[in-house]
Computed example of a mutant assay.
Amino acid sequence: MKLDPAFIWTAFVQLLSVIPTTLLITAVSVLGGFLIGTGIALLRLYRVPVLSQIAAGYVTFIRGTPMITHLLLIYFGLPAIVDAVSESLGSSFRSVSIPYLAFALIAFTITASAYMSEVVRSGLLAVNRGQLEAAYSIGMTTPQALRRIVFPQALAASLPNLSNSLIGMLHGSTLAFTVSVVEIMAKAQIVASTNWKFFEAYLAAALIFWGLTVLIEQLASRIERRINVYNRGGVA
């Protein structure tokens, strides 16, 4: 096999056009997963009757099954549910109107929520319980104490794990091509199919993912440094 450096550059340039799709999948799934995961973590920490057991079962199931399984279950199961509900309501809306990207966003958000819940839960457990009790002693309600005292510290403690989860979802977004979403890896396959130079196309894709990963690592490192300076009483 003879390497074609010129085609690596050609593929690299063509792959740039789908980076926004990959970043959209990553950002939406991580943000949605963080919000849902925070709710799940609070349910489990405060041991809300029934709901905490459901939340624990949800986390166990999602973490115990592959990411691609969630995607395929949503891709094949959600349309059937949508069509059944629409028909029962007498609506003309059908699942064929739903873009493929929506299935990927829903599935990856579900996946991220389970992992994010554990990240958030570990961060909350890292905050000294005495700080919450001190907040109660000065008249704060639980939501106020969580928002002003607990969450900021928990977020700082969870930052390394959050960045790892973000990188994991960035790489996991490559599975979206299985439901016809054209992201970086799918585009690489399309580009390579014109002349069968798959190695060069996938190498270009690897370089892009590596670059995006480095950017995330650098951003997380800067945020962590600023948080550490603030926690030491310095000027951020």
Rank of each mutant, 00 (worst) to 15 (best):
I8V: 14
I8D: 07
I25R: 06
I25N: 10
I25S: 09
S29D: 05
G33E: 04
G33N: 01
L35P: 09
L35E: 09
I36D: 10
T38C: 11
R44K: 13
R47W: 05
V48I: 08
V50Q: 09
S52Q: 05
S52E: 02
I54M: 11
I54Q: 04
A55W: 06
A55Y: 06
T60K: 14
T60E: 15
F61T: 11
F61C: 08
I62R: 08
T65M: 03
M67P: 07
M67T: 13
L72H: 04
A84G: 06
S88E: 11
S88V: 09
S91D: 09
S95V: 04
I98Q: 05
Y100N: 15
F103L: 05
F103N: 02
A104H: 10
A104Q: 08
A104I: 05
I106D: 00
A107G: 07
T109G: 06
I110E: 08
I110P: 07
T111Y: 14
M116H: 13
E118Y: 02
V119D: 02
S122E: 00
G123D: 01
L124S: 03
V127N: 03
R129E: 09
R129G: 10
Q131V: 00
L132Y: 12
E133P: 00
A134D: 11
A134T: 09
S137M: 13
G139C: 08
G139P: 04
M140E: 09
T141N: 11
L146Y: 15
L146R: 06
R148V: 13
F151N: 11
P152R: 00
P152C: 06
Q153S: 07
A154R: 00
S158N: 01
P160R: 05
S165T: 15
I167E: 05
G168T: 01
L170D: 00
H171E: 12
S173Y: 02
T174W: 11
A176T: 09
V179M: 01
V179K: 00
E183R: 07
I184E: 00
M185G: 12
A186V: 05
A188Y: 11
Q189N: 14
Q189T: 14
N195H: 01
N195S: 07
W196K: 13
K197R: 15
K197P: 08
F199C: 04
F199T: 13
E200C: 04
E200M: 04
E200V: 06
A206T: 11
A206P: 03
L207R: 04
W210L: 10
Q218E: 15
L219A: 15
R225D: 12
N228R: 15
N228C: 09
V235C: 13
A236L: 14
A236N: 13
